[in-house]
């Protein structure tokens, strides 16, 4: 290769490195984090059936503040939270608050009995084969996502909350 071809070759190789290397490094920087979806992320979409046989997708709730709670009857802090969510739902329903409670893939009878005993009025969604919970990368039950009207996650809380904790977060959510 003579001198005249040298500069273009240099530029092509350096550009190639910049592109490939930039892509590889960029991927590590912006790789989907292993853990829970975090504030600012768009929560994974889902379409699940409710206890009363309707089908609900998260997308339908865009534009509304949503509290997305994952619970199971086998998890005592989840059970404790349910009536608190019910009271919060009653309190903020007028302001547009929606609560979606996703059951952790338990069977029909268990969920029906449990919900009937509680008198819950917000929709209970039924996950199947842990699919949704896996996509949300849950590590702990209960886990609650506070989703802003713009469809992005505002806050995440892993573990049981006191009613005051819920109230405070709902108020922040309603302010957005």
């Amino acid at each position: 290769m003579r001198g005249s071809a040298r500069r273009p070759v240099q530029i092509i190789i350096l550009l190639g490195v910049l592109l490939l290397g930039g892509y590889a490094i960029g991927k590590t920087l912006f790789a989907s984090k292993e853990g829970l979806p975090s504030p600012g992320d768009t929560p994974p979409a889902f379409t699940l059936s409710t206890l009363d046989g309707r089908t609900v997708s998260l997308e339908e709730y865009k534009g509304k503040p949503v509290v997305l709670n994952f619970w199971g009857s086998f998890c005592p802090p989840c059970v404790k939270e349910m009536p608190e969510f019910e009271r919060q739902y009653e309190k903020w329903k007028g302001e547009g608050l929606e609560i979606l409670a996703v059951n952790l893939s338990e069977d029909n009878l268990t969920v029906q009995n449990f919900v009937a005993g509680m008198g819950l009025t917000y929709p209970i969604l039924r996950d199947v084969d842990k699919d949704t919970e896996r996509r949300y990368k849950l590590r702990q039950y209960p886990t609650t996502f506070f989703i802003r009207p713009d469809g992005k996650i505002g806050e995440v809380y892993a573990g049981g909350m006191k009613e005051a904790d819920i109230d405070e977060r709902v108020q922040r959510l309603l302010k957005d």
Binding site: I13, V17, G21, A24, I25
Partner: peptide, 17 residues
């Protein structure tokens, strides 16, 4: 999978070429 490790590999690759 860290950015600095990949950066080192990319630099070694560049240096190789």
């Amino acid at each position: 999978e860290s950015w600095w490790f990949i950066l080192l590999l990319v630099m070694i690759g560049t240096s190789l070429v």
